[in-house]
Amino acid sequence: MSLNVSRAVREAAGRTVSRNGVVFIVVFAVLGALSAVVTDSAFLLLDSLATEVEGAEPVDVPAPLGVALPGSVLLLLGLVWLLANAAASVVAMRVLVGEHTDTIPDDLFSRRLTRATMSDIAAEIVAAVLIGIGLLLLVVPGIFLAICFYFSRPLIAVEDRGFVDALAESWRLSRGNRLRVFALLVVVVLVGLAVSVPTTLVSALFGGAPAVGSVLGIVLGAVTTVFGLAVVARAFAQLRGDEPETEHADEGEHDEWDDPAGVEW
């Protein structure tokens, strides 16, 4: 099935401003705040450690949301954020792929959430490493891999696939629609850049209160996150015929990586 880019973007925008979309914006804003606190606190910790080393230069990085916390606590909070963010992304994907805009059925929380969360983390790490290597080498291979792995998250969240199976099936599912998927990636990036403009302006206006810009950035970042998830979800729903299956055949059945001979865009 051919992917309709404009339809996916329109539907994603509608889902982002729906009741469920707003709920997820709040969830990801809270997670974004936790991430910012952990990051800024880590900079404060590094700065304090640097002052104890003779001849070491201070880190000197703005950390408006930083709190003086020991390293062990920061590691624990970082782990909590990683797990919570992945779990929230899985649930959001399940909701956004379906037709739920005002309520969230209980089974979307309860169905194999732990397994899906761990698979999502593994898939994101593997994809990020491979894409990063591709970008460092010639840029184009990294972009190609980002396109091919674009649907791994909905495959994990909706079809309960393992991370290897999800990456392989995403590769197959993107075949024939890769230029359109690239267009979706461009749209999401442009929206992210547009959203960053107000944050930059507020940071400049409230230079004496950097926390104001940080908080606005967290909120707008949450909006961008939900929109990005919604774009993937609605594109996936199209390619799965708008009614994606919740169960799939034995893992490995669709493990097809047979592209190199004649790459199909």
Rank of each mutant, 00 (worst) to 15 (best):
M1P: 12
S2Y: 01
R10S: 15
R19E: 13
R19P: 04
N20P: 01
V22N: 01
A36F: 06
F43R: 12
L46E: 11
L49S: 15
T51K: 13
E52I: 05
V53K: 06
P58V: 15
D60I: 11
P62E: 14
A63V: 01
L65S: 13
V67M: 15
L76H: 10
W81M: 06
A84D: 06
A86Y: 03
G98P: 08
H100V: 02
T101V: 10
T103D: 07
L113P: 03
M118Q: 06
L130V: 15
I131C: 06
G132M: 09
G132W: 04
L136M: 09
L137H: 11
V139F: 00
V140E: 00
I143F: 12
I143A: 15
F144R: 11
A146L: 11
I147D: 07
S152M: 04
V158M: 13
E159A: 12
E169T: 15
S170F: 06
G176A: 03
R178D: 00
L184N: 14
L185Q: 15
L193F: 12
A194L: 02
S196D: 00
V202S: 08
G208S: 02
A209Q: 12
A211E: 15
V215E: 11
L216F: 10
T224Q: 13
T225A: 13
V226T: 01
G228N: 09
L229E: 13
V231Y: 02
Q238A: 15
E245I: 06
E251R: 11
G252V: 05
E256W: 01
G262R: 12
W265K: 03
